[in-house]
Amino acid sequence: MNLRQLTHIDQVNASQWDALLPSGYPFLRHGFLAALERSGSVGIDAGWVPAHLVVENADGSLQALLPLYQKMHSYGEYVFDWQWAEAWERAGQSYYPKLLAAVPFSPVQGPRLLGRCEASQQLILQALDETLQRGLVSGVNLLFNQDSDNSLLERAGWVQRLGCQFHWFNRGYSSFDDFLAACSSRKRKNFRKERQSVAAQGIHFEWHQGAEITETHWQRFFPFYAATYLKRGQQPYLMRAFFSELSAELPEAVRLVFARQDDRDVAGALFLVGDDTLYGRYWGCLEEYDRLHFETCFYQGMDRCIAEGLSRFDAGAQGEHKLVRGFEPVLTQSWHKLQPSLHEAVADFLERERAGVRSYQAESAGFLPFKQET
């Protein structure tokens, strides 16, 4: 088996790449990563330099892969290491560049280190170790992976970091009212009040999916996406062309919703669909409307999950306000291997942080809106 580093995802056959993935996970699909690269959303100018690792047999067949980027900053990751960078800089060392195994701008759990056999995966880990030993990077960070990677990473000396997100679970509901029936009386009233508040403003919702989404839809959506960043004085992470590429590459996964008032768009949100999960990704509005964010990003997504028979709704990172709306605390993880002195200090910190995150998850569950069992 031979290890090869890619400077562009198109240097590997798309069908071979996708054949290593579990079906229905859109964020690691060749087409998704290619859309990011072709649109310029990742690349040298963005500080996300593709450095994907693949293992191939002599006949060129793909045996293992790791989506990998050389990073010159820590933006767009959602696992924050700014303090590590500051500490390493104070020690007279350079924290950047670093290596990042992740899906850019997408804090969604999924597969990362994929291989047909453990030996092929170990070839990738050995290559990362050699890069560290040569002092070319401060460390390697693997974000939002699934448990299947854990044993291999732990044995290779990586250290785990825990986080917490809030996901909504469809417990076999046939309607939103079924979900409400599982909640306490006071919470049911609050949910209905929030949804009625949006309807009373004359706002209704228009969904589009798959091949019916045209360039006109993306032209309507992009100003809302961009506004979310521009309001904070930032440039959007994703270029306009990314959305067109996404539509062309993964039409079956795309869901787009517009909030409309008096025949004009007032907000928009993008969702992606996996085998059993709805992923809420990007949203924005140009004017402020009472409770519109909750309706567009949460309640519309719940309705969509129920309508499509999906079992889980991942509405994105952070947001304790999701708890009282039925989104349950779920542990996420990342794994890290750093230069020796930095690695030792971070490992000690993460051991204490993991205990705190688990306590936070347990305490957060007490704020859920569901009826208390007697």
Results as ranks from 00 to 15, higher is better:
residue 4 R to D: 07
residue 13 N to P: 01
residue 13 N to K: 09
residue 15 S to A: 14
residue 15 S to N: 09
residue 16 Q to K: 13
residue 26 P to S: 09
residue 28 L to G: 15
residue 31 G to L: 04
residue 35 A to N: 03
residue 45 D to V: 07
residue 46 A to E: 09
residue 51 A to Q: 15
residue 63 Q to G: 04
residue 90 R to V: 11
residue 91 A to D: 14
residue 93 Q to W: 03
residue 95 Y to Q: 11
residue 95 Y to R: 10
residue 97 P to M: 09
residue 108 V to F: 08
residue 118 E to V: 06
residue 118 E to L: 11
residue 118 E to C: 05
residue 124 I to P: 02
residue 129 D to L: 09
residue 129 D to S: 13
residue 135 G to Q: 07
residue 146 Q to H: 10
residue 154 E to W: 07
residue 156 A to E: 11
residue 157 G to W: 06
residue 161 R to M: 14
residue 163 G to L: 01
residue 169 F to M: 08
residue 170 N to K: 13
residue 171 R to Y: 04
residue 173 Y to G: 05
residue 175 S to C: 12
residue 179 F to K: 11
residue 181 A to S: 06
residue 184 S to V: 03
residue 197 S to A: 15
residue 204 H to L: 08
residue 217 H to Q: 10
residue 218 W to E: 01
residue 222 F to G: 02
residue 224 F to K: 12
residue 226 A to F: 02
residue 226 A to W: 00
residue 228 T to C: 03
residue 232 R to N: 06
residue 232 R to Q: 09
residue 243 F to Q: 01
residue 250 L to S: 07
residue 251 P to G: 07
residue 255 R to W: 11
residue 259 A to V: 13
residue 260 R to G: 01
residue 261 Q to S: 12
residue 267 A to D: 07
residue 272 L to D: 01
residue 272 L to W: 00
residue 274 G to K: 12
residue 276 D to C: 10
residue 276 D to I: 10
residue 279 Y to T: 10
residue 279 Y to G: 11
residue 284 G to H: 00
residue 303 D to Q: 11
residue 309 G to Y: 06
residue 309 G to D: 08
residue 311 S to E: 06
residue 314 D to W: 01
residue 315 A to W: 01
residue 316 G to L: 09
residue 318 Q to W: 09
residue 322 K to D: 04
residue 326 G to L: 14
residue 333 Q to Y: 00
residue 339 Q to V: 13
residue 344 E to F: 05
residue 345 A to P: 02
residue 347 A to T: 04
residue 353 E to S: 05
residue 353 E to D: 10
residue 355 A to F: 00
residue 356 G to S: 13
residue 358 R to Q: 14
residue 359 S to H: 07
residue 361 Q to C: 15
residue 371 K to A: 04
residue 371 K to E: 06
residue 374 T to V: 03
